[in-house]
Design a protein around this nucleic acid. Structure first.
Length: 272
DNA sequence: AGCACA
């Protein structure tokens, strides 16, 4: 090589990234359960079930009254890790109750749910840790829709984001059209935001990982005082999505606070 | 929970 280019193309070991805890379809150690918080205290197990049942690979869910105040959390279990991740990204941050504005917060559970009842029998389960039970007993699978597939749902909980879509353009005063058609209405973006990196994480550690996926453009690592965060730009939203699904929650050698947390960036990386 | 570069 006679001339040194500012950016020599990097083709490291593309598909195999051994230091990553890649959780595939058949990894028995993979987390297949989601932890759901941000629920209103009057949430019903049926609502949780209806929220998750449409997601690919859904298995079953649990609603848990924690006993701390009126706090309610839920666990949704999927047949494999990628399905759980896909549902996480589809539903995390959506408004669960437009009335109160309560927003779902979904993360991977610390461990997989163990079905306490006979498999296949219960579509959802309620765990009530509240001390004084006010006799609000049977909450198991009652409604006969456990098997049927009717798209017409009286509840408006499943596709909550359609609310935002409908209210698409509250004020386009002056804003007009963005030539940057990159950001989609549901927040998907071809640039990824990566957080929960270890304090010593560097661009040279991340780049071989992120550039190993199709459509990779640019990586930027920022260190705002505390923990570093990274922005990884891809050619297409779909390619960014693939990377997010593949690497979500995986750890790097420098990771010290758990796995990477990857989201769509709020805005597309500017073309230099 | 943490989202920059213009």
């Amino acid at each position: 090589m006679a001339i040194s280019r500012p950016y020599e193309p990097v083709y490291y070991n593309l598909p195999s990234i051994p230091q990553l805890e890649y959780a595939g379809y058949d990894d028995p150690n993979a987390i297949n359960t989601l932890f759901v918080s941000g629920l209103p205290d009057d949430v019903k197990a049926r609502e949780i079930h209806n929220l998750f049942r449409r997601r690919h690979g859904f298995d079953y869910c649990q609603l848990k009254y924690t006993g701390r105040g009126n706090q309610v959390v839920a666990f949704a279990t999927f047949v494999n890790h990628p399905s759980a991740i896909a549902a996480l990204h589809a539903l995390n941050g959506v408004k669960f109750d437009p009335q109160t504005g309560s927003t779902l917060h979904i993360e991977l559970a610390r461990s997989n749910s163990r079905r306490k009842n006979k498999p296949g029998s219960e579509a959802y389960v309620v765990i009530d840790k509240r001390s004084t039970t006010t006799k609000d007993g049977q909450e198991s699978s009652d409604d006969g829709d456990s098997e049927t597939e009717e798209p017409s749902e009286p509840n408006k909980d499943t596709s909550t984001k359609s609310d935002e879509e409908t209210a698409a353009d509250p004020d386009n005063t002056g804003a007009a059209e963005n030539e940057q058609t990159e950001n989609t209405v549901d927040g998907a973006c071809s640039t990824l935001f990566i957080a929960n990196l270890g304090p010593n994480c560097t661009e040279s550690e991340l780049k071989p990982v992120l550039s190993g996926y199709p459509g990779f453009n640019t990586l930027k690592v920022r260190n705002r005082g505390g923990m570093p965060v990274a922005f990884a730009d891809y050619e297409e939203v779909e390619q960014a999505t693939e990377v997010m699904n593949a690497l979500q929650g995986s750890t790097l050698p420098s990771s010290d606070r758990g796995g990477m947390h990857i989201e769509y960036a709020r805005s597309k990386m500017r073309k230099r």
